[in-house]
């Protein structure tokens, strides 16, 4: 399998001098395309910080990041347009759906593809395909405020997939869902990872989701470990 995300000696500090806080001191790992990886760590361990660095939102203190075959960070961003990288390579899913409230379902899904230069007709066709896949095609013209939480979350996932991303970063997508729906969403992410050959990193606190994933990223003492499911279960390293 091809590499989707690779990091090398990734470090993130906040502040300086007496107020310096080390959050991540060594993150060296590799995630392949088609993998669903759970990112599990206690609160405050640096999960979101790690996710934001991979997502080109937060600038690391040092280290290297590859997205696909492209080295995007080598002690500095190698492109001025991190936002373009996000738009073209990454799909985001959040705990809350965070749909744009003044756009209807279809417009929320086609917003990023259109900005990437995909024609309106093609973007709509793909969006409707995705909405159909998630069983909410009939809601294409509805406003997010008129949908249920579960429907909105499915729209958010469709939006994350609309730009054919190489990577999906999901920040606690199941936190607001009951256990049955949580399992459904994780299974859906697994299916997407396989069918679209996409790497999915999913932040979660729910240990029950771990068996559904391919690997586990965890953070202990500011160091990031990339573990197989069995290794994580046995707590061999952590």
């Amino acid at each position: 399998m091809d590499t989707a995300i690779k990091t090398e000696k990734l470090v993130k500090h906040f502040g300086k001098g007496d107020t310096l806080v080390e959050v991540i001191n060594d993150a060296t790992f590799e995630i392949k395309k088609g993998e669903l990886v759970a990112l599990i760590a206690p609160s405050g361990a640096g999960k979101t910080t790690l996710l934001m660095m991979i997502g080109c939102v937060l600038t690391p203190t040092s280290g290297k990041i590859w997205l696909g075959n492209e080295l995007v960070y080598d002690n500095k961003w190698l492109t001025k347009e991190q936002r373009k990288i996000r738009r073209e390579k990454i799909g985001f899913i959040f705990q809350a759906h965070y749909l744009i409230p003044f756009l209807n379902v279809l417009e929320n899904v086609i917003l990023i593809p259109e900005l990437n230069g995909v024609g309106e007709a093609k973007a709509k066709e793909k969006a409707l395909e995705l909405l159909d896949y998630f069983g909410i095609k009939d809601k294409a013209d509805s406003m997010p405020a008129n949908l249920s939480g579960g429907q909105n979350q499915r729209v958010a996932i469709a939006r994350a997939l609309a730009n054919n991303p190489e990577i999906i970063l999901a920040d606690e997508p199941t936190a607001a869902l009951d256990s049955k729906r949580s399992v459904d969403v994780v299974k859906m992410l697994k299916k997407i990872a396989l069918e679209q050959n996409t790497a999915v990193i999913m932040v979660t606190h729910d240990e029950a989701m771990v068996p559904l994933c391919d690997r586990v990223l965890t953070i202990k003492d500011k160091k990031v470990y990339n573990l197989a499911i069995d290794e994580y279960k046995n707590r061999a390293i952590v």
């Binding site: 939102v57 996000r86 985001f92 900005l115």
Partner: peptide, 13 residues
């Protein structure tokens, strides 16, 4: 501002 942050995060220029 929340929506704007989301748009920026998603890559809206």
């Amino acid at each position: 501002i929340k929506e704007i942050s989301i748009m920026k995060l998603l890559g809206v220029p």
